[in-house]
Design a protein around this nucleic acid. Sequence first.
DNA 1: CGGCAGCGCAC
DNA 2: GTGCGC
DNA 3: GCCG
Length: 662
Amino acid sequence: MALFTNLTFYVFPARTSARAYKIRRKVYETNGAVVLSTLDPKTSPKPTHIIVDSDWLAQPERVRGSGLGHSEVWAEQNGDVPIVCDTWVLECMAQNKILDVGPFLLRATEQKNAETESDSETESDSEPERKPQKKLEQKQLHGKEPEQKITDPAHIYDTALEGVRTGSAKEEESPNAAALQGLKRLQEHYNSLDDRWRALGYTRAISVLSRETTPIRTFQEARALPGIGASLARKIVELAAGHTVDPPLVSALDTVEIKANEERAALAQIHGVGPATARKWHAAGIHTLADVRSRLWDQLTPAQQIGLDHVEDFAARIPREEVEQHWTIIREAVHAVDPSAEALCMGSFRRGSAMCGDVDIVITRAEATAADLRRVVARVLVKLFESGYLVASLSGPMPGVDGPGEYDFGDDGDDGDDESELSDESDDGKEEDNDDEGKKGFSQFLDEYSKATSSTDFSSIPPAKRLKLSPSRTTETSSPGTRAAAACTTANSSPSRGATSPSQPCGSQQSSPASSSNLFSPRISNFAGSKKPIAHKQKYRLPRLWMGAGVLPEGSQGLESGQPPRWRRIDIIMVPWAERGAAMLHYTGSGLFNRSMRIVAMQRGYHLSNKGLYRAIVPKGRKSSGVKVRLCIPEQLVEATDEYKIFEILGLPYRPPNERSK
DNA sequence: CGGCAGCGCAC
DNA sequence: GTGCGC
DNA sequence: GCCG
C-alpha cells in the first residue's frame, strides 16, 4: 500500500512554474495520494492536507495576496484541515511513514510589515524569540489577520526533524572545561604525529566528557565513563586539578617537539593537507603557513592553494542562521533548474547545532539516479558560480568558469558504477508516468531551459564577471603550476583576510608565485609532487560529492562593520533517490556517531555505508592474510531509503538527529 | 594482541 | 597505491 | 588512546 493512500492533498501552486507544480503533484500521486486541483468546496472533496511549498515560506511577502489567503479561509471554514509545509511530505517519504503534522504546520503570527524594510533583514533576526513560538499552537491555522508572517522553512524543517536544537547554545560552561582543553591539545598532538588511533581515543574521550554536565574530579568518576581508561582518567584528574598539560603529562616531549607538533597541526589546517603532508613539509623545514606560501606555492594542488588562502575562513564556525541563508540560496538555485529536486541541509545543521563547520546540502529527487542528479547539479553549480555566490571548487575545475571544456552529463546512459539496480530500472515505470519528466523529457526540459535563460548552456557561458582570476595567479601563467591553480579556483577577492594571517601579511602572497622558485633548494622543490599542467580534458564528470566554497552577498551577513564576508565550505552531495535514507544518515553524522553505528552493524552481520545497509558476506571485519577482505561480491541490500528502518533493522532505538552527537 | 567505518576522489 | 576529506 |  502506498504511503499516502487514503490521503487527499491540495497542493498550493508554488515555486516558479506550473511545471513544478505538476511534477510535485505527480510525486504525491505516485505515493498514493489523491491530489485535488481545486479547493472549491462545491466541486471538490475535502482534502486531508493542504501542502504549501517551502519556497513560499521563505518569502512571506509573496504569499500575501497570492491566493494562499484563499486556502486559509477555506481551511477556516472547514475546520481543521492542516496546512503543512512540503517538508512534511518529504520527511514522510524519507521515513516511509505518516508523521505527525504538528511541527510542519504553518503558523500565522503577527505580521511585520515586510515591504517597508529592505529584506536584507532576515526573518530570524527580526524575530529573536522564535523559540517560544516553536511550541505548537493548536489553532494556528486560523490567521486572525489577513496578513501574516510565516516561519522560516528552515525552522520548520529543524523542529520537525529533531525538536528544537538542544544545548548547543552555551557550551563554554562545561564543568570539565579545563580537562577538555588539555585533552584537545593532546589529541591534536597525536594527530600531528599521525598516531591516528591514539588520537581517536582522545577524540572519543573528549566527546564523552564534553557531554558530561557534572564535574569529573576523581579517577573513578572519570574511569567510569565509556571510552575512558586508566590512562585518560589519570590525565583528566590531573588536568581538572589545574595542572597544565605540559609538565607532568607530556614530560616525555621536550618543548621543541611540542612546538613542532603545533606547527604540523597548523599546516594540516589547510584543506588538502593531512598529517602525512604536514610531516613531510615540516621535516623539510616548512614550518609555517607563510613558509608554505613563499616556498611551496606553485607546488600546491589547486585545492591546497585555495585552502591556504582561506585557512582562517574555513576554520571558522558558521552560525546556524548563516547556514540557513546558504541553504536558501542553493535550494532556490536547485529549484530553478529542476523544480522537483530537493535540497536538504544536513550535517551539524540538521543535528541542531548553533554553530556549524560547513554547509552540507544533499540533492535528491524522486526516482532520480546519480546521472540525473549530476545533470541537475552541474547546472546549479554554473548558475551559482555565475551569480557570484560560489567562489571556488575544491573538487575540480568548473567548465565555463575555469576554462574550456564541458561536463560529461552522463546523458549517454552508461554511467558506470553509479547506476545501481535500485535506481535505474524504475525509469520505465514511475518515471514514465511523470509525463514529460522521463529521461528524454527531462533533457528536453533542460534544453529548453538553457535556451530560455541562456545561462545554463555551457558552451555559451561567458566567464562570470566576478570570477576573473586573481592577478597573483594569472600574471605568471607561464608556469605550469599556476595554470593548474587557475583551473581550480576562481578567487575573486583578496585571497585571505590578510591582516589576521598568522605570520605574514597578506600582501606577501602576491609575490610568492613569482619569487618562490628562487627560494627553492632543489631538494625541497619536489615535495609536493610535480603537478602537470591541466590540459583540460574534453569532458568532466561531476563527482557525487562536490566540495567548494561559497560566500554570501555583501550585506546579507550580519557581519560586523567592514569585514569582508567569509568564504564558507560548501558540500553538495548528489544522492540517488533509492539511497536517500542511508545518505541522510551518513551525512547527518556525526562522524563519531557513524563510526559507532557501523561497528554495531558489523557486529550484527551487516555492512553500513552511505549507500545502504547490506547483509555482510564476510562476517565481521575479518582479515585474510593480513589484508582486509575487500568485498567485491555484491552483497544483499537490506535497506537504503528509510533512515528509520536502518535503526530498526539493526535493533537500535531510533535517534533523532539532535541526539547523534556521538 | 589486533582492531578501531567505509567510501570515492585527486594525485 | 597513498593521502585526503567526507 | 580504548576495547574485547
